[in-house]
């Protein structure tokens, strides 16, 4: 049994982090839940308690549901794509090959550039009239593509931009996981006659489960909160095809001054993220 004084010490070390967590995460969350129960009178600026009126309003709002739908589709596409590519990339850079050191530095470069700058540069490259991508397509004999201006292509363009940063970032975590796998385990499998695919599916993947669980959860949350490329490139268009819920929340609250509805949307979003993350953690829980 440790003396009481020593038992306190770990908590003292945790205190600064806990303090920041409370101030920057917990308090805003509670404030949002609180705010979602109020409406602000437009004329007097007075805050009036409204119960679930804001929720009632957004649940009857077709634009909210449309935005919800876009967010779900986006998440269902972007998360598997990013994680599959990140896993592939991590396995690739885990190989010992001549010149791999150079590649390991280059593939990390997108992470070093902020999402905003990346979004703007990709916006220029995907421009319909003067973008580089269309220039290349024209050289290859492919017609100009509208990309961010087309209902069918805009969401995919956003997925591309998000993955440009997301894939190398998450692959970094997976790479760390791969390098944690003790080489003797893989060697033993090889001696037992497992081929590369078998040792990947039977040994590498199960041993990566914890890392993958973290990456999946963190990636899901990051993509649910995707905002900057929408603000900078599409404003939710064309025809609301990229109107992710974070952008709709921003538009309601900060552009149109409807903080109550905005807070209600955020609270719903929070609940959904909570549930999804719970399911993900449950599905990938360690059995060891």
């Amino acid at each position: 049994m440790m003396p009481a004084r020593q038992q306190i010490i770990p908590y003292l070390f945790l205190l600064p982090a806990l303090f920041l967590l409370v101030v920057f995460n917990l308090m805003p969350t509670i404030a949002t839940l609180f705010e979602s129960m109020f409406v602000i009178s437009l004329r007097s600026g007075e805050r009036v308690f409204a119960g679930f009126a804001n929720y009632n309003r957004i649940f009857n709002d077709p634009i909210f549901w449309k935005s919800f739908q876009v967010t779900v589709v986006f998440s269902l596409l972007v998360n598997p794509i990013q994680i599959a590519l990140a896993l592939g990339l991590a396995v690739l850079i885990n190989q010992r090959a001549p010149g791999i050191g150079i590649f390991r530095s280059i593939y990390l470069l997108p992470i070093a550039v902020s999402l905003n700058v990346t979004a703007i540069v990709w916006g220029l490259m995907l421009d319909q009239n003067s973008g580089m991508v269309n220039g290349i397509l024209l050289q290859l004999g492919v017609a100009r593509q509208p990309f961010l201006h087309s209902v069918d292509q805009a969401l995919w363009s956003i997925i591309l931009i998000a993955s440009w940063i997301g894939v190398p970032l998450w692959s970094l975590f997976i790479l760390a996981g791969l390098q944690n796998i003790p080489p003797p385990v893989l060697e033993a499998a090889k001696i037992d006659g497992a081929n590369a695919w078998q040792s990947f599916t039977k040994i590498t993947l199960p041993l990566l489960r914890r890392v993958l669980a973290f990456v999946l959860v963190a990636d899901t949350v990051a993509n649910f909160l995707m905002f900057a490329p929408i603000l900078l490139l599409t404003s939710g268009g064309p025809q609301l095809s990229t109107n992710l819920i974070m952008y709709e929340t921003y538009r309601r609250g900060f552009l149109y001054g409807d903080l109550g509805a905005s807070a209600a949307m955020l609270s719903v979003m929070l609940l959904i993220v909570f549930i999804i993350v719970g399911i993900e953690l449950y599905a990938l829980r360690g059995r060891d």
């Binding site: 268009g237 064309p238 025809q239």
Partner: peptide, 11 residues
């Protein structure tokens, strides 16, 4: 403004 931009780009 969003609407006109969409129509302009083919919606």
């Amino acid at each position: 403004q969003n609407t006109f931009q969409d129509i302009r780009n083919g919606a």
